[in-house]
Design a protein around this nucleic acid. Structure first.
Lengths: 119, 119
DNA sequence: AGCTAATACATTGTAAATCAATATATTAGC
DNA sequence: GCTAATATATTGATTTACAATGTATTAGCT
């Protein structure tokens, strides 16, 4: 077990949330998503992304349309469905609550430790 | 695929980080950890916690000592090793960076969407 | 002494999901 | 046609959380 593994687990947990967010901002195709995630330091591989998009599509959170490309095969451009938008709002709430809880738990370690060792 | 699943994935990602944080605050035994996690709305089951503590111990991040209990079997009280403290600091950094990135990516969706649809 | 309840550490089997590697398909340029 | 670049997609291996149990210790009661 490395720390790197724990770090990547942290990132994994928010993949779907981030991807829904990116799609919500505008119609994108998978390579756009990979790029935007990389720019945010949240790397995702295609072998992870495609099954994930398929899952979200099958769950009714996404739709896509084929768009011809000038350089290569056609692309699948994704958008959020109404359910997808609702799901995103729920996840946004969960995210805000969870980060609040984790920050409360982790950011005050020095003060708490001093209080404990003092007793 | 449910949203609940995605929500629980979010929590999974920070389990180790939170547990290291709890142990850093003071010597605790597993039931203390379960309780503190529950209080923070980050539930963890014993079947998850015990293997996790064993992994962290084997990785050299934790140590424990047996302490007799007045009501039941002896308890394993855990503390962070020096490596464990270093690992926690690294994870604290990762956490702060990641939440910053995710917030940047997700919290401005409305403004960005308006900008996109306007073009 | 023996029984039950409470507490606590631990393992097993299952399901889900990411990743690395690879496969398949389309377009442009030479 | 052939190659390179771009895209979508699948497969097999590994990891890991969880539910369900299992094992063990202590206290209190009869």
């Amino acid at each position: 077990m490395d720390i790197q593994n724990t770090q990547s687990q942290m990132r994994k947990g928010v993949l779907e949330f981030c991807i829904l967010s990116i799609i919500q901002k505008g119609e994108v195709y998978p390579s756009d998503i990979v790029e935007q995630m990389k720019a945010a330091n949240l790397h995702i591989l295609e072998g992870t992304l495609y099954p994930l998009l398929t899952r979200l599509k099958n769950a009714g959170l996404l739709n896509y349309r084929w768009v011809e490309s000038v350089s290569g095969p056609p692309r699948k451009y994704f958008v959020l469905t109404e359910d997808g938008n609702k799901a995103f709002e729920v996840l946004l709430n969960t995210w805000n609550e969870m980060t609040g809880a984790v920050n409360k738990l982790t950011q005050n370690e020095k003060a708490t430790q001093e209080a404990n060792t003092a007793s």
